[in-house]
Lab assay of single mutants.
Amino acid sequence: KQVQVGDEKYTFDTPEEARKFAEKVAKEKNLKVTEKNGNFHVE
């Protein structure tokens, strides 16, 4: 599963790991997490 933050992409083995990372980054940057096709976008 992938997490996209701006132009950066991070790959994780499980959706749970990806979601945790996305939520942590979103909180730090005051952004929101959206899920698209099983991948997460922080925007």
Score class of each variant (00 low, 15 high):
1 K>H: 15
2 Q>H: 13
2 Q>W: 15
3 V>L: 02
3 V>C: 04
3 V>G: 01
4 Q>F: 15
4 Q>V: 15
4 Q>E: 07
4 Q>I: 15
4 Q>R: 10
5 V>T: 03
5 V>F: 10
5 V>C: 14
5 V>A: 03
5 V>D: 04
5 V>Q: 02
5 V>N: 03
6 G>A: 06
6 G>K: 04
6 G>V: 04
7 D>W: 11
7 D>Y: 11
7 D>S: 12
7 D>Q: 13
8 E>A: 12
8 E>V: 14
8 E>P: 01
8 E>H: 13
8 E>F: 13
8 E>N: 12
9 K>T: 15
9 K>A: 09
10 Y>V: 03
10 Y>F: 12
10 Y>L: 04
10 Y>A: 02
11 T>I: 13
11 T>N: 09
11 T>V: 12
11 T>M: 12
11 T>E: 09
11 T>C: 14
12 F>I: 00
12 F>K: 00
13 D>A: 13
13 D>K: 11
13 D>V: 07
13 D>S: 13
14 T>N: 09
14 T>Q: 05
14 T>L: 05
14 T>V: 04
14 T>D: 11
14 T>K: 05
15 P>T: 14
15 P>G: 08
15 P>C: 13
15 P>Q: 13
16 E>H: 06
16 E>C: 11
16 E>L: 06
16 E>F: 07
17 E>G: 05
18 A>E: 00
18 A>I: 00
18 A>M: 01
19 R>S: 04
19 R>P: 00
19 R>Y: 07
19 R>I: 05
19 R>Q: 06
20 K>C: 11
20 K>Y: 09
20 K>G: 06
20 K>F: 09
20 K>R: 13
20 K>E: 12
20 K>P: 00
20 K>Q: 12
20 K>S: 12
20 K>T: 10
21 F>C: 04
21 F>E: 00
21 F>M: 01
21 F>N: 00
21 F>T: 00
22 A>G: 00
22 A>M: 04
22 A>T: 00
22 A>R: 04
23 E>P: 00
23 E>F: 13
23 E>H: 10
24 K>H: 08
24 K>F: 09
24 K>L: 10
24 K>E: 10
24 K>I: 07
25 V>A: 06
25 V>L: 12
25 V>Y: 10
26 A>H: 01
26 A>L: 03
27 K>R: 12
27 K>M: 12
27 K>H: 10
27 K>P: 01
27 K>T: 09
28 E>V: 07
28 E>D: 11
29 K>W: 13
29 K>L: 15
30 N>C: 12
30 N>G: 15
30 N>L: 06
30 N>Q: 08
30 N>I: 04
30 N>K: 08
31 L>H: 06
31 L>A: 11
31 L>T: 07
31 L>D: 04
32 K>G: 07
32 K>L: 10
32 K>A: 09
32 K>W: 10
32 K>P: 06
32 K>D: 06
33 V>D: 03
33 V>C: 10
33 V>S: 03
33 V>K: 02
33 V>Q: 02
34 T>H: 10
34 T>S: 09
35 E>A: 06
36 K>P: 02
36 K>Q: 09
37 N>P: 00
37 N>K: 05
37 N>D: 13
38 G>H: 03
39 N>T: 14
39 N>V: 15
39 N>E: 11
39 N>Q: 12
39 N>R: 10
40 F>H: 03
40 F>S: 02
41 H>A: 08
41 H>W: 14
41 H>Y: 15
41 H>S: 09
41 H>E: 08
41 H>M: 11
42 V>R: 02
42 V>N: 02
42 V>D: 03
42 V>C: 06
43 E>W: 13
43 E>K: 07
